[in-house]
Write a protein that binds this DNA or RNA. Structure first.
Length: 648
RNA sequence: GUCCUUGUAGCUCAGUGGAUUAGAGCGCUUCCCUGCGAAGGAAGAGGUCGUACGUUCGAAUCGUACCAGGGACACCA
């Protein structure tokens, strides 16, 4: 599917216009179907009057008109106006809508590694994690639709403090306490059977935080204080046991995080989010990635050992040294190895980033984790797995992480550069996005009082957040109550609504999560998109088997403005995909999907009922148009990860 | 303090150099189903695009300053 705009752009390129060409609508329809200010832009570059440039381009175009363009005119101060041959366009578009999307082929080649989700495996997913997963998954879909080869990985931080904390809570927050040994059956039994495992962990993680990190505003009493001291001591023991690797507690921790990961993957699958590979932090450590990386960083002189000063005894990345502030001296350097020899998260991340580019001599071992609901296998790194070719070795790496981690990401890429991997550093992208906060209304529902109009940050520590599964369940309930369809897949439609809600915002807009807004089922929502698709399916079903076939229609002599609008929108899908894949944002796709659905609604409401149309040619053409819309919308929904339901 | 980011209609947001009318949804005021799905469509009210100066033939869009939100600057991740 190449629309008139794309064909015009291609011809302009042939004529030596290498700048990005943009198109827009002229103020009056008689001035053309679309226009371009390219000659005005070229004025500065070529130093000629825009009207002269425009006229020159027009003459060039006229000698061999772009496909689907029947005329080109010039209007002051130098706009090029294009008149579309709608009949030719309609004929091709309807036929091609059934084929694959054929976007402009990518200039760069090689595999793209996208990492997203990355939820700490110690509690249930909340709406903030949903934003990450849905954003990452949609970018993956857009890149694949644009012809890129993509591998998706999900990083599991199973050796971090958050897991240690929840293990501490599991073993020692409530009786029966862990008393040593290999038998954890009594411990596991503490998780109630009537509450999801990840929800239980959510609760005990928040509960243990009140001892490990007490709120200064609410000091602990004597009894609580002694309990807190006990838990701190146990936490230290657990930390050592997990670091040691092959201990009973380490195995318990791994079993616990595995259970949580299974819960996360189930939740993600409910939102049509899938992966290729799970990368476990414990495997990064055991595979010796860091030792290898450490050696190279030292050799390259990218890091230095501090003999004195604030960071005495640490290996650091120099980022500006010590600076004086009113609060005293402070170091801007980034510590990779602490004075006790332990490495920081950023250090692991450097090694991991090198693995993604295939720049380490060592590799993980792998095993099959599961087959996902999309039918694709999911692999995982595993210490006792098998060597396996084909993972990593990417040409480009995209890490989907929220904006608060911009600085550590910068350090990682800087270190790649210092190691001499200049191209890899350039091809590393932090896909940064703003966080999700809770509106006063959402917070109130979770039992937190906030001033009207204020919002509140989610906090795993405090157990404050909207859980993803709760949101999906709730949305499905709202949807079920609105539908007359007995066979409605409310859960699938809930996923549509939630995904679209998250994707509508640009990445640097903070989402103030609000139940009322999120659960809207009319207007600019995912439900509206699916509705338009279901409506088209319904018309075609009523018209009978095989109606709307792409090969049996005659384009009428004249088309209505609604028909033209619909055609134009259908032809724009490749541009929307390309724009999303280039900018790594989802708004080009969501705004496109909405205008496509709106164009269909406009067409539907301003066209006499097709099924009662007496002229068989017109009836057949319009059914073909509906059929083409169904195909284009299906592709659009698929890129958004939204299920195309034929009835809602 | 330094750096990043945001400020567009009552609310929530798109738009980030182009054309005398800056778009959408929600909310508000009116219409439109014995004619294909009203989770829809049509019409209307509602905006000095934070403020000021500048660059440009042209600025919501670029630059500078200021004001106001948010975030990052740990031997956390």
């Amino acid at each position: 599917m190449i629309g008139p705009e794309a064909s015009a752009a291609a011809r302009l390129k042939d004529l030596g216009v290498h700048e990005t060409v943009e198109f827009n609508s002229p103020p009056r329809p008689e001035m053309g179907d679309f226009s371009s200010p390219i000659a005005l832009k070229l004025r500065k570059i070529r130093g000629q009057a825009p009207l002269v440039i425009a006229e020159e381009i027009r003459a060039g175009l006229e000698s061999s008109l772009p496909r689907y363009i029947r005329d080109v005119t010039v209007t002051p101060p130098g706009f090029l106006n294009f008149f579309v041959d709608h009949r030719a366009f309609a004929a091709d578009l309807i036929r091609e809508s059934y084929g694959p999307v054929t976007p402009i082929p990518p200039e760069d080649s090689g595999k793209v590694e996208v990492e997203h989700t990355n939820v700490n495996p110690n509690k249930a997913m909340h709406v903030g994690h949903v934003r990450n997963a849905v954003l990452g998954d949609t970018i993956v879909r857009a890149l694949r639709a644009a012809g890129r080869q993509v591998e998706v990985c999900n990083y599991i931080d199973d050796t971090g403090i958050q897991v240690v904390d929840v293990v501490t809570a599991f073993l020692y927050l409530e009786a029966p306490y862990y008393v040593g040994g290999e038998d954890f059956s009594e411990i596991w039994a503490k998780a109630p059977s009537d509450r999801p495992f990840d929800y239980y962990c959510w609760d005990i993680y928040a509960a243990v935080q009140s001892y490990l990190k007490p709120d200064p505003a609410a000091p602990l009493d004597a009894a609580e204080q002694s309990r807190a001291t006990m838990l701190q001591e146990r936490k230290a023991e657990i930390t050592h046991a997990i670091e040691a690797g092959d201990t009973a507690i380490a195995h318990f921790a791994k079993a616990l995080s595995s259970r949580i990961v299974r819960a996360h993957l189930r939740t993600a699958a409910r939102l049509n989010v899938f992966y290729n590979l799970l990368n476990w932090e414990s495997d990064i450590l055991r595979a010796g990635f860091w030792d290898h990386t450490f050696q190279r960083l030292k050799e390259a002189g990218a890091i230095q050992f501090e003999e004195s000063g604030l960071n005495k005894g640490c290996w650091v990345v120099p980022m500006g040294g010590t600076e004086e502030t009113p609060e005293g001296a402070r170091s801007r350097d980034k510590i990779l190895v602490r004075s006790n020899g332990a490495i920081t998260y950023t250090a692991k991340d450097i090694a991991y980033q090198l693995w993604k580019f295939g720049k380490l001599d060592t590799d993980f071992r792998y095993e099959l984790w599961d087959t996902q609901a999309n039918g694709e296998p999911l692999w995982t790194t595993a210490w006792d797995g098998e060597p396996r070719e084909g993972f990593g070795r990417a040409a480009r790496v995209i890490n989907v992480i929220d904006v608060r981690q911009s600085e550590p990401q910068t350090v990682v890429y800087k270190c790649l550069d210092s190691l001499g991997f200049k191209e890899e550093a350039r091809n590393s992208t932090h896909l940064s996005y703003e966080v999700v906060t809770l509106s006063a209304q959402a917070a109130a529902e979770l039992g937190v009082d906030v001033e009207e109009g204020q919002d509140v940050s989610m906090s795993g520590r405090k157990g404050l957040g909207v859980k993803a599964d709760d949101l999906i369940d709730r949305m499905a309930g709202v949807i079920r109550s609105r539908s007359a369809e007995a066979t409605l897949d409310a859960e699938a439609l809930a996923a549509a609504a939630i995904r679209y809600y998250m994707l509508r915002f640009s990445t640097n807009t903070r989402i103030r999560f609000d139940f009322e807004v999120a659960s809207q089922t009319n207007g600019d929502t995912g439900v509206y998109l699916v509705y338009s698709f279901a409506r088209a399916c319904s018309i075609l079903a009523k018209a009978g088997e095989g109606s709307g076939r792409p090969d049996e229609f005659v384009v009428p002599r004249s088309l209505s403005s609604e028909e033209k609008d619909l055609l134009r929108e259908m032809g724009r899908l490749p541009q929307a995909i390309q724009s999303a894949a280039e900018s790594l944002t989802t708004t080009p796709l969501t705004t496109y999907a909405f205008s496509l659905a709106s164009a269909f609604a406009g067409f539907y409401d301003h066209t006499p009922p097709i099924l009662r149309e007496p002229d068989p040619d017109i009836r057949q053409f319009r059914l073909s148009l509906v059929g083409a819309f169904r195909e284009v919308m299906k592709k659009t929904l698929s890129i958004l990860g939204i299920p195309a339901l034929e009835r809602i």
